[in-house]
């Protein structure tokens, strides 16, 4: 028994030491045997589309594509904090533009558009933005910092002030990303929320999308770029290019995204 513990302890210490050593040369990419690694940080709304085409891109390039999906603002904050990310794809153009202005991201490109809609459960009686003002209607929207949340506030600000106020009074949660909004709606925790049409498509009929009048709906353009500190500039650029032409472009189109403006 004593010997067993001793071996276990030794194994743990060895593992820790090995972990540290691995970290030392892992960044340099000196290990020619393992495939190149490409880390992609993408807005949560692209999860389904990019999970389809990411591995395909990886196989074609013999690269190991790792994808991380979250609110665009969280991902931008991670890059600002020095996270080792190669490609950043956001649900707006402001966040990539800001990163570019601060020298953290190469010139961003606009690669897709999405439609900003009102989402309700499939048997909901809500049919328009005006219906949201009714007392007792519960809503979940994106928090102010995430693109879906700022689009939502932009849109509501175009309504008459009393309507805007009544709708905001019905908000029960400010979610950190679109997945949180969609999840709460499909679980019946709230009646309505503002999301992208692609998110509604991904629920396979659980939710219904209500189009907004043209004067109300914001222009939702997605922007992407290669992170300046990335050691995979060429590969990263090919991934970004592939968002407008290639497997990922097709997957985005299939998910309901529109072409770049």
């Amino acid at each position: 028994m004593g010997r067993l513990w001793w071996l276990l302890l030794l194994a743990v210490c060895a593992a820790v030491a090995a972990g540290c050593a691995d970290d030392d040369n892992g960044g340099g990419g000196s290990d020619s045997e393992s495939p190149t690694r490409l880390v992609v940080s993408a807005a949560a709304s692209m999860t389904e589309a990019l999970e389809q085409c990411g591995p395909e891109f990886g196989t074609a390039e013999t690269a190991d594509v790792k994808m991380s999906f979250a609110g665009s603002d969280e991902l931008a904050a991670q890059i600002r904090q020095g996270a080792k990310v190669d490609v950043y794809a956001a649900a707006n153009t402001r966040l990539p533009d800001d990163l570019h202005a601060d020298g953290l991201l190469g010139t961003p490109v606009e690669f897709a558009t999405n439609e900003f809609v009102l989402a309700v459960t499939k048997d909901s009686e809500i049919d328009s933005v005006e219906d949201l003002t009714m007392e007792g209607t519960t809503m979940v929207i994106g928090s102010e910092s995430v693109p879906i949340g700022s689009y939502t506030r932009e849109t509501l600000a175009k309504l008459p002030p009393d309507q805007e106020k009544a709708i905001l009074a019905n908000v029960r949660s400010n979610e950190p990303d679109v997945k949180g909004i969609v999840g709460k709606l499909t679980q019946g925790a709230a009646d309505a929320g503002f999301v992208y049409v692609t998110d509604v498509n991904a629920t396979n009929g659980e939710l219904r999308a209500i189009k907004l009048p043209a004067e109300l709906g914001p222009q939702v353009t997605y922007g992407a770029g290669v992170v300046s500190k990335s050691e995979q500039q060429a590969l990263g650029q090919r991934f970004v290019d592939g968002l407008t032409d290639g497997a990922c472009a097709d997957a985005l189109e299939e998910a309901g995204f529109g072409p770049a403006p």
Binding site: E74, A77, V140, S143, S145, V171, R172, S173, N174, E175, P176, G180, K184, A189
Partner: peptide, 18 residues
């Protein structure tokens, strides 16, 4: 969920400000 004063506890507020 996360709503100021109703359901946004300190850890959620930290994440919101991150």
């Amino acid at each position: 969920g996360s709503f100021q004063g109703i359901t946004q506890t300190v850890p959620l507020a930290i994440y919101d400000r991150f």
